[in-house]
Design a binder for these strands. Structure first.
Length: 268
DNA sequence: TCCTTATGTACAA
DNA sequence: TGTACCTAAGGAC
């Protein structure tokens, strides 16, 4: 489930399990073997996230991880299970293990290279140092749709397809509206909503966006079953009735990503 | 067993 | 805009 909340949760979990230890580092799949040999037995001091990028802090360098669409991390208590041949990076101590599979990026980088990654990312609602005004300056000057801008990691870091669909629904915003037509007040509301939603996402390790008064229990609907795990308004609910107005939820292809919205509730 | 799909991104044309 | 890349699950045969 790799949107920003997943990565920040992973940073917390890697830190909790490995900070202060010197894990055995291996790459059963082979693509990270050389770096693993350099790192194994060296101290890991912590982990950090910016948007969908994860950085593991080893004493002398960083491991830069991006899960892409398919990447996953399996964390658990020792003993680690026999490694399968898709494990790109395994950390193991006497008490914990972490297996990384399918990442789009897993690389050893320097401080300067890490700074370059930060420099090309927009503000992250989950970081204390985030400046929402920096995102708004780009949005308010752009003729691109707000739906596309929310997925542009240079504009705002960490929002993915689920949070995009859901935050636009929660604010009644037409996904096709141009960024330059989003008012400062609307952006303030969207940003603070993302901060709250994504913090809850880190806490629960899943995305829930439905307000208490709209939950299945409150609305007398059957409980929702979806394999992404959370309770949502429109994401992947194509052809189903909107929870609020009953209109059919629509989907469209926008810049090679699936867009979901309610044409009735999102006309602003 | 094969095909489709997915919460992502980078690069070529 | 299209395509390539990384993995695993579910459904159609």
């Amino acid at each position: 489930m790799p949107e920003g909340h997943t990565i920040h949760r992973l940073a917390q979990d890697y830190t909790a399990r490995f900070a202060g230890s010197a894990p055995r580092v291996t790459s059963p799949q082979g693509k990270f073997s050389d770096a693993a040999a350099l790192l194994t037995g060296t101290p890991l001091t912590g982990a950090e996230a910016h948007g969908k990028h994860l950085f593991l802090a080893f004493e002398a360098s960083w491991v830069h991880i991006h899960l892409g669409l398919f990447g996953k991390v399996a964390l658990g208590d020792a003993p680690a299970p026999p490694p399968t041949d898709t494990v790109r990076l395994r950390l193991a101590t006497g008490t914990s293990y972490a297996d990384l599979r399918g990442p789009t990026t897993c690389a050893l980088i320097t401080d300067a290279e890490k700074q370059a990654v930060h420099a090309r990312l927009g503000p992250d609602p989950l970081r204390e140092d985030a400046d929402p005004g920096a995102a708004y300056r780009r949005i308010s000057r752009s003729r691109t749709t707000i739906a596309a801008l929310l997925l542009d990691q240079k504009v705002i870091a960490g929002v993915g397809n689920v949070y995009r669909a859901e935050v636009l629904f929660r604010h009644g915003v037409d996904p096709y509206r141009a960024g330059k037509d989003v008012t400062p007040a609307e952006w303030d509301a969207i940003w603070s909503d993302l901060v709250a939603l994504m913090r809850e996402g880190v806490r629960n390790n899943r995305i829930d966006t439905v307000r208490p008064e709209h939950t299945p229990e409150a609305m007398g609907r059957p409980p929702r079953v979806d394999d992404h795990g959370g309770e949502v308004y429109v994401y992947r609910r194509t052809h189903q009735p909107c929870h609020l107005c009953g209109e059919t939820v629509r989907t469209a292809d926008l810049a090679a990503r699936n867009l979901f919205w309610c044409p009735d509730c999102q006309q602003n």
